[in-house]
């Protein structure tokens, strides 16, 4: 494969048109997708969650199976904030994100001096601890009954959340856009590049004076905050939080979405989460067991034959197109 195709996305500058495509599709869907806005909201929330994992796992190389901890924490925090404190959705979102980021900072400081299997187990253990805590604190979380009664007030005091999820869709899309722009900037920043360096060779980074542990903790906290925002959006739009948000399966699903779509490509999160939720919805309607099979086969094919996931395939095709154009112009 060509040099361009194998390079991380950060090296090939895409055209503005390319950038506009996913957002135009999402906005287009808003106008024609009547009856499917709730599904769209699901997809957008999972895209944001996957995007947050891409920052930690993809760019910084933090091996984690515990990202559900931050998603779940954000979801419960937003739900409880809505019920007990204030029903303004943006306040709840900010509270949940900050809480998740703080928790990421704290746990990151505890575990990020380890790596490999140790780190994997520690991340998993932390999300399991939160699961048990939520399970036992029935007085607060209502345990396995799930936290309901979340009634977010009108957005900005103006737009009421409707039954069909139209307001939710635009709300989540706007939050996703902000988070995406932040991610896009961060992974190209000196900070993001130093983390890319740590992933590739932490010894090199120590040799140039990088405080590796602090860098990792900072990125982990940022990623946790974003995962918390995804959780908060999920709670506010579904108006329900269940214990399953803390389960290992949640962490597993988001990892599958990221690998399907392609790591270190940001837009990989968009494709991976969309495909996953759509397959789950469409194939799941035909046969509740069938969709797992489809996802499984898709994952095997992608991992074995396509470097960089589905987004990698698109990048490769784009590179080919550019070369063809160039050689065409040369003639």
């Amino acid at each position: 494969m060509s040099e361009i195709a194998r390079a991380p996305a950060s090296l090939s500058p895409p055209s503005p048109l390319w950038h506009a495509l996913p957002w135009a599709l999402a906005l287009g869907f808003f106008f024609v997708g009547d009856g499917y806005h709730s599904l769209g909201v699901n997809i957008l929330v999972m895209i944001l969650f996957t995007l947050s994992l891409d920052l930690a796992l993809g760019y910084a190389g933090i091996i984690t199976l515990g990202h559900a901890a931050f998603f779940g924490l954000g979801a419960y925090a937003a739900g409880l904030f809505n019920i007990h404190v204030d029903n303004d959705p943006l306040l709840g979102l900010a509270f949940a994100s900050l809480l998740a980021a703080a928790f990421g900072l704290l746990t990151g400081m505890l575990i990020l001096h380890t790596k490999g299997e140790t780190l994997l187990m520690l991340t998993l253990a932390i999300s399991e601890i939160l699961y048990e805590a939520a399970n036992h604190m029935r007085w607060l979380t209502r345990g396995d009954d799930g936290l309901d009664g979340i009634r977010p007030g009108p957005l900005l005091g103006l737009f009421r959340f409707d039954l069909w999820g139209k307001t939710s869709f635009l709300y989540v899309l706007a939050v996703l856009f902000v988070c995406f722009v932040i991610s896009w900037r961060v992974v190209r920043s000196p900070f993001g590049r130093s983390l890319d360096g740590i992933r590739q060779n932490s010894r090199r980074m120590r040799a140039i004076g990088t405080p590796v542990w602090w860098r990792l903790v900072a990125m982990y906290a940022l990623s946790a905050g974003m995962a918390g925002a995804a959780g908060a959006l999920s709670a506010q739009t579904a108006r329900l939080v269940g214990l399953s948000v803390f389960q290992l399966l949640t962490s597993g699903i988001v990892a599958v979405m990221l690998v399907l779509g392609g790591e270190r490509r940001l837009y990989g999160a968009f494709i991976g989460a969309t495909i996953y939720v759509l397959v789950q919805d469409i194939a799941g309607a035909i046969n509740p067991f069938y969709w797992m099979f489809v996802i499984g086969v898709l994952l095997i094919v992608i991992v074995l034959f396509f470097e960089g996931g589905l987004m990698g395939v698109i990048d490769a095709a784009r590179a080919k197109l550019v070369r063809k154009k160039a050689s065409g112009e040369a003639k």
């Binding site: 920043s189 890319d196 090199r204 040799a207 140039i208 004076g209 860098r215």
Partner: peptide, 26 residues
Amino acid sequence: TLLMELTARDNVAIAVAERRKFAWRL
């Protein structure tokens, strides 16, 4: 111990950013 996926120039630039204390800029 080089960053094999990056260009030679970026390898050096990352070190320069670290020295000039730009590496915390997000």
